[in-house]
Design a protein around this nucleic acid. Sequence first.
DNA 1: CGTGTAAGGAATTCTGACACG
DNA 2: CGTGTAAGGAATTCTGACACG
Lengths: 102, 102
Amino acid sequence: MTSYKDKKVISIGIVSELTGLSLRKIRYYEERGLLSPGRTERGGRKYSFADVDTLMTIAERREEGVQTAEIKQELIKERKKKESVRNEMIKGQLNAHFNIRK
Amino acid sequence: MTSYKDKKVISIGIVSELTGLSLRKIRYYEERGLLSPGRTERGGRKYSFADVDTLMTIAERREEGVQTAEIKQELIKERKKKESVRNEMIKGQLNAHFNIRK
DNA sequence: CGTGTAAGGAATTCTGACACG
DNA sequence: CGTGTAAGGAATTCTGACACG
């Protein structure tokens, strides 16, 4: 659930190398609400691998000329979809569990 | 194979928070050859989650009074074991593959 | 042997702002 | 709207060394 992929531990410089995006862009996408990195005690941004993936997606969409507001909506939908897939899986497991003992 | 767990992306400060070890200790265990972090262009150390796990193991063993030289040997053995487990798995899959088509 | 610490320097990151468009 | 950049400051990290034991 909270695996390595979701731990916020990567500094913005490394994220920049990983994604090829400038620091400015990375901070800007946060400002527009497309992602929310964690923070160290003194304000340093900390990203997860999931955040890095999100940034790669953002980069692709931006290259296609899509505006950040639009991308933001897409990301929200994407997250809701994953959410419901998770819920379906749990539902399925519950059913399997009860069917077996019936 | 090279999953999130093995990507060297975490700076030493974060590793210190994650493990509870001082910067001095983390650097010293490297000096003794117990782990090898990556480096950024200008010399900054970069650790993986696997390195963090290794450091936790080191911390435990040190608390038990084990010396770094000893711990180093244990870590090497540990890695060889994992290596051979990987090889066995591949062997098993090859066998399964050929048995099916026979 | 293992770890702390002070030292000086270099590189990182932060924020708010101005620029262009 | 999205991104670059110069600005000043604060926090991070690096190495080599001395200390204690």
